[in-house]
Design a protein around this nucleic acid. Sequence first.
DNA 1: ACAAGAATTGAACCGCAGTTCAGTTCTTTA
DNA 2: TAAAGAACTGAACTGCGGTTCAATTCTTGT
Lengths: 208, 208
Amino acid sequence: MPYRRTPRVEARLSASRERVLAAALAIVAEHGYAGCSVAGVARRAGMATGSVYRHFPSKADLVAEVFRTASQREVDAVARAASLERTAAEGIAAVIETFTGRALRAPRMAYALLAEPVDPAVDAERLVFRRAYAEAIARLIARGVATGELPGQDIEVSAAALVGAIGEALVGPLAASASAAAEAPSGLPHDAIPNLITFAQRSLGAVT
Amino acid sequence: MPYRRTPRVEARLSASRERVLAAALAIVAEHGYAGCSVAGVARRAGMATGSVYRHFPSKADLVAEVFRTASQREVDAVARAASLERTAAEGIAAVIETFTGRALRAPRMAYALLAEPVDPAVDAERLVFRRAYAEAIARLIARGVATGELPGQDIEVSAAALVGAIGEALVGPLAASASAAAEAPSGLPHDAIPNLITFAQRSLGAVT
DNA sequence: ACAAGAATTGAACCGCAGTTCAGTTCTTTA
DNA sequence: TAAAGAACTGAACTGCGGTTCAATTCTTGT
């Protein structure tokens, strides 16, 4: 019985899979889902179109995994920033600064994660993504309520609402700079971020 | 010179246009954009596929107008509800009740307006839609600040953030009930709406 | 009634990107 | 080195729905 899958091959296969994923991620980061075709991903990964299907059963699966990877990265960054702060008020400020800072530095990717049209299979991942944010914020709020810094409230509702509030403040500007080819990212008014922070702190009942 | 466009024909033409629009609106309300094909619209409007193109240069134009019509209706309902209330606190409560009430009564349409994937041409309309909401809420906040009921704040940021907050609280449940064929609309937890109202009022600095 | 021209029809067309697959190349074991 | 079988290739296939257009049916003014 010649040929049994050896560790060497296994390693090369999983390296190939990673290359596909990385290529797709890079393309989405640069051109969004709109610019992400299977042929393009394959070219960038240095392989034939058909080979992509050795690693992913369909484009939807590939894109969903791209989405998961990218969003996990974002959520981790935000959750980490929140956990470094002492009070809930400082925590929420750190969340907003981290979130908006990263989004403005990579507007095409942020638009892809937040709002770009995708097929329904991937849209489901978007809900997971938003939910993960909401959970990170919920932990923050729960801490604040426990220490008495924040008044009692429906933590799930507050967290979801804040996710929406933060996202919404960015979607307009991001959509604008995502359609415009390549431009200075910040179409955001000057004081928008500090004002958003104030809004968020007040919405949680933090006394500043 | 025989045949000059007579009022009679003109009337029939614009009636046809309306039939197309109404058919498309009905289909979107029932099955979302996903279920809205040109052939389907034509069938429902009682005409041939090609005739749709006598009234709209492309599907994107048709869908954009459907979107505009439907969203105008929603914005008007919310703005009207807000204007009937005396205080900003009551106004924002009315906005949330109206918005969520209508959305839960027509979840497929709400999902189509808020979150369903569409082609970029139509996505631009979505920004207009959200902006219109934000303007209605901004007026409400401005009134409250003017009367001293609300503290000074960045009205645009507060309004955009609230639009996001309200939308986000609904997107999860709506996405769930939009994919499930036809089910009882409310996947919303019991107290979510009053709690969202409390959140919104606190976020504006209303003393309740 | 008739000619001129518009509106309507619906089947055929088309473009596109995801997917497939027969042929080729590479890897492994004996 | 040879045979067995996997991995890889990329051109061809496919399905779908928006769009078109030659043929037909209506409408209008003389």
